[in-house]
Design a protein around this nucleic acid. Structure first.
Length: 456
RNA sequence: GGCCCGUUCGUCUAGUGGUUAGGACUCCAGGUUUUCAUCCUGGCAACAGGAGUUCGAUUCUCCUACGGGCUACCA
């Protein structure tokens, strides 16, 4: 049988990292099995709709290459794929349930819901009254169901109240729409968040009422805040767009969230799409929640950044530096700068800070740095370098190394005593690129200008 | 409160009826880099607790504790 999975977000905002992980697992599982991945929009709460959210969601999902085979804008095989466009489908189904006595209506009177169990009366009242539809939960029954990860789960139905399946505005609730659609869209595996586990018996019961075979259920462990509560805004970013804006690479994000709740048997940490596809297995999904640890993401992101070809790195960085009005005409310098940067950042939004000293004639204000460059020995060293760096001479790595050695011999100093003042003057910081790199990026003219500018 | 789910280093996790309980991130130390970062090496650090089953339990069962989720005309 063809494997069919779905991702079914509500258009209440941007794509959430938890949502992205759910989408990813659904996608990978279907693709691994040569199956079909479906996108369905669950917009049955008219109060929480956010403008353009559907477009945004679709854009985000596609930008991570989680290409769905069926969805609102592609391949309408079992469409429409937007729930608000399926109201008539839900209607025939709930009418069916009422007729079968599996559901009943309640007339809305102010804050009260008054049930009407008599069929004739009910259909009559429905003509000119506001009503909701409730599912009848059988009493005195233990419902036994199954989650592929957790095994058998039992629920005492006496503890569950009759849930509303159709709201008074005519829209279905999640519980109802979700079951109807998963069935009609021939979904074989429902992979969704653990927060749905408590309502599983309602869903199973609905399948029963219609006489349908339910799909397999896999309830994913939750993504957690550092304090172990369900991942939310307030304690950091949750929108994938925010991560993109900070310069996390898509591949790194995918890799990282894939490992939040899943890991194969070996010690590998870095996974491409291909290896994810190859290694993924539902059996290896974790049961307990996973804290979203930004430090590990940062590390992983830096790994992905370092692996990039310089050309690709520059290309991906474009929107993080293009707004700066620096003169990037000197391509040789430009490449050298980025080569240097690539090894030192873990997020692309850190690029401007590193670009700054190379492209802007900064002044040094920090007390500590000033006191270093103003010391007698520093001034002597800087003057010595200014004398020895001569334009039109070949200033290569060897030359700079020799000059460092000379300086050490001449002034009887070494290490930081030499490097700090020079680097502060040329780069604005004690630490950073080695002197040869620095000089070769700045060029001899600018190097000398910076050296001279602080000479007393 | 009730119901459901969960519990291996601080974090993400591997693993097994008998292991020195493995890896990664973080942190620390050393080396390389006459700075820093990178890189390399090493180190710290975990089976929630109690019963039971068993020759032997981190692993199987039960209980407790703790954590989380759900408990809407939201998903």
């Amino acid at each position: 049988m063809e494997i069919r999975t779905r991702f079914a977000p509500s258009p209440t905002g941007f794509l959430h990292v938890g949502g992205l992980r759910t989408a990813l697992y659904n996608y990978i599982f279907s693709k691994k099995n040569n199956g079909v991945f479906v996108l369905r929009i669950e917009d049955t709460d008219q109060n929480r709709l956010v403008e353009n959210a559907i477009e945004q969601l679709i854009k985000s999902i596609r930008s991570f290459n989680l290409n769905f085979d069926e969805g609102p804008d592609i391949n309408q095989k079992y469409g429409p794929y937007i729930q608000s466009e399926r109201l008539n489908i839900y209607k025939t189904h709930y009418i069916d349930l009422i007729k079968k006595n599996k559901a009943y209506i309640c007339i809305v009177k102010g804050n009260e819901l008054i049930p009407e169990y008599n069929l004739d009366k009910a259909f009559n009242l429905m003509q000119k009254n506001q009503y909701v539809v409730k599912l009848k939960i059988p009493k005195n029954r233990l419902l036994s169901t199954f989650d592929e990860l957790r095994g058998k789960i039992e629920f005492d139905l006496d503890l569950i109240e009759d849930p509303i399946i159709i709201k008074s505005d005519g829209y279905p609730t999640y519980h109802f729409a979700n079951v109807i659609d998963d069935y009609l869209m021939k979904i074989t595996h429902v992979i969704r968040g653990e927060e749905w586990l408590p309502s599983l018996p309602k869903h199973i019961l609905l399948y029963e009422c219609f006489g349908w075979k339910p799909p397999k259920f896999i309830h994913l462990p939750l993504l957690l805040n550092p304090d172990k509560s369900k991942l939310s805004k307030r304690q950091g970013d949750v929108n994938v767009d925010d991560f993109l804006k900070k310069g996390y690479l898509k591949e790194a994000i995918i890799n990282f969230i894939a490992l939040l709740g899943w890991h194969p048997s070996d010690d590998v940490e870095i996974f491409s799409y291909k290896s994810l596809l190859k290694n993924f297995s539902i059996k290896k999904i974790q049961k307990s929640g996973a804290i979203f640890d930004i430090k590990k993401l940062n590390w992983m992101n830096s790994v992905y950044i370092k692996e990039l070809e310089l050309k690709n790195f520059i290309e991906l960085s474009e929107k993080f530096y293009s707004h700066l009005n620096y003169n990037f005409e000197n391509k040789n310098k430009f490449f050298k700068v980025f080569e240097f940067i690539q090894n030192r950042i873990d997020r692309l939004d850190q690029i401007p800070d590193f670009l700054y000293p190379f492209y802007v004639d900064f002044t040094i204000n920090d007390e500590q740095l000033l006191s270093i460059i103003n010391s007698d020995i520093s001034q002597k060293i800087i003057r010595y370098w200014n004398m020895n760096l001569i334009e039109n001479h070949d200033i290569d790595e060897h030359f700079v190394k020799e000059l460092i050695k000379d300086t050490g011999d001449k002034f009887d100093v070494k290490g930081k005593t030499i490097f700090y003042p020079l680097r502060i003057v040329l780069f604005g910081k004690k630490d950073g690129p080695d002197l040869f790199t620095l000089i070769s990026i700045l060029g001899i003219e600018k190097t000398k200008r910076r050296l001279m500018s602080i000479l007393r």
